[in-house]
Amino acid sequence: MDGITPDLLALQLFTGLALGAIYVLLALGMSLLFGMLTVVNFAHGAFYMLGAYAGILLLGFGVNFWFCLLFAPLLIGGIGMLSERFLIRHLYGRGIDYPLLLTFGLSYIMVETVRIFFGTQGLPFDTPDALQGASDIMIGYFPTYRLFVIGVAILVIAALWLFLERTPYGLIIRAGARDPQIVRILGIDVARVWLVVFGIGTGLAALAGLLAAPLQGASPEMGASILAESFVVTVVGGMGSLVGAVVAGLLVGVVVAMTSLFAPEMAQVAIFALMAIVLLIRPQGFFGRAGLMS
């Protein structure tokens, strides 16, 4: 293929990283829920979609985009906590497929509800004025908004890491994931810990959805295809591993970008080929603990 210059390759690599940033945010939440609660959240795509619509709702009330970035995840995280408290909580300890089926059904309810209130057609979502247009990044022009998404992803990763590794509350969450019984004996309300974890996980999904809305608009089905992709990311990175989610998210983004450059029609397949290869060589994923699924 002619016309492939080093600059184009570099730009393409960057495009992949930007794409990967959204995968990372989704996979982080998913991995958090699995690693801490062993819940495979099939409603993760629906929470992602709700994030976008929460943004539209808040913008409609005159809230500006920057506050939306804060309030939409809080709002949807709240809905996530409600569904944990009243639905998912009752299924802990019953095997992995119970919450899986419940969240699967939950996603249908959420998608239909959005269709009823916001219509089936999808809604436009304009890029915030301050982030419109393209910026010069030395190798070429790149949409400013996508740079912003990369920035937000880095911030979220840093904040999540600090929260889990450097705060007393993070310590409790990690302990609760490893041995809930001992934590309970020490007088800590584990149920509340799990509630908060579920809120953070779904809030992250909502943030990803809100960030994706200016890229593709909002539609009730927007969570469906990205759910499959972020599952691949979670599996490749290792179910339950947050480092894995970050590395695999970026890797998947780059793989899609590079395949697109040389064989666009293979881009979608490449994601699943990558997963197949990783599973063959390292069934637990890059950073996963073996036997967690059993």
């Binding site: 393409q12 495009t15 890229l215 927007m222 697109s260």
Partner: peptide, 9 residues
């Protein structure tokens, strides 16, 4: 849902 990888080319 994403066409960004095709656009630089």
């Amino acid at each position: 849902t994403d066409f960004s990888t095709l656009l630089p080319r």
